[in-house]
């Protein structure tokens, strides 16, 4: 090529430059679509969910603490009866109980996989955990219904439906998630911590207990909170075993309900725009906000862990 041609081609916008703009626009558009989806989820659910308080003038405090859910009827003062406390309590009860049961198992399995036998861990437990994550929640619900509920009924009495059954089902469902995140937390503890401890004559268990677990506490808590977030939002499996009674649960084996179970059962049976429908959207809004709160908690923990 002659010098002038090269100079001219350098001053012109090349095919590659056009190509670059095309790619950037195209992929930017994809991101824009996702952002639009996220924003509109919040916008639509919030606008529906807040109508209960702004259009139907329901008192927020009464909504959160009221114990009777009967949107069709009014109480003696003429206020609609939309007390969400039974569902809120139900949701938190199954969430916390499942997390409490799952935590020792998750930590135990994670410690086994990282500290005791990484080989069995990688070859056997890792695929097992991945498969457990993959099992659909309706299958968990079905097994809960045909195995856990009869088991609870025989062992503890009652109908078998209730928070206890919900806890068992959720325990198995969040176990793999919490375990694999705990494994990541343990793996991030530097090798030399362990070596230093073992060199000082500590046993393996002492090293795990006093060094590895201490050093990864914030990571483990993050894993647990993440699991709780999952449990809180799980709908169908819980709904199938919890009994769906909108009463404040008196014990662990009487039928109860969660935010998700009421939503899945109720949304189809109410008319758009009616109070009973708006009240359901308020529950959905609660469900939307809770992951955010869990998220903030996780970040706080992660930050604390980072400083230490």
């Amino acid at each position: 090529m002659k010098n002038d041609d090269i100079r001219a081609s350098l001053m012109k916008r090349s095919r590659a430059a056009k190509n670059e703009r095309f790619g950037k626009t195209l992929t930017g558009l994809c991101i824009l679509i996702i952002i639009t989806v996220v924003v509109s989820i919040f916008f639509f659910v919030a606008s529906k969910g807040l109508a209960t308080f702004f259009t139907n003038k329901v008192n927020l405090w009464k909504f959160l603490t009221g114990t009777i859910w009967n949107p069709g009827a009014t109480d003696a003062q003429g206020n609609p009866q939309v007390g969400a406390l039974p569902m809120i309590v139900g949701s938190f009860a199954v969430t916390f109980l499942a997390a409490i049961v799952a935590t020792p198992f998750a930590i135990g399995a994670a410690v086994f996989m990282t500290e005791i036998s990484p080989k069995i861990g990688r070859k056997v437990l890792q695929p097992v955990i991945e498969l457990l994550v993959g099992i659909p929640s309706v299958v968990y619900g079905f097994i809960g219904l045909s195995v856990v509920v009869p088991f609870v009924r025989r062992t503890f009495g009652g109908s078998g439906f209730g928070i206890l059954s919900g806890t068992f089902v959720l325990f198995v469902m969040i176990l793999p998630t919490v375990t694999s995140m705990t494994i990541d937390a343990l793996n991030s503890v530097p090798r030399n911590y362990r070596e230093a401890s073992l060199a000082l004559g500590a046993t393996r268990w002492q090293t795990i207990y006093k060094v590895v677990l201490r050093a990864s506490t914030s990571g483990i808590i993050t894993a647990i909170v993440f699991g709780m977030s999952r449990a809180f939002g799980e709908a169908l499996a819980v709904q199938m075993v919890i009994g769906n009674a909108m009463l404040l649960p008196g014990n662990l084996i009487s039928p109860a309900s969660t935010l998700t179970s009421v939503l899945t059962m109720g949304m189809g049976n109410s008319v758009m725009g009616s109070l009973s429908n708006n009240a359901l959207w308020s529950l959905a809004l609660l469900l939307l906000i809770m992951p955010l709160i869990f998220n903030i908690i996780i970040r706080k923990i992660a930050k604390k862990g980072a400083i230490r």
């Binding site: 010098n3 090269i6 100079r7 081609s9 350098l10 001053m11 012109k12 916008r13 090349s14 590659a16 430059a17 670059e20």
Partner: peptide, 16 residues
Amino acid sequence: YRGLDVNSNQIDVYEM
């Protein structure tokens, strides 16, 4: 480069 300042916005970086 060839009498042009290639460190300028007018230059097509891919061609360069």
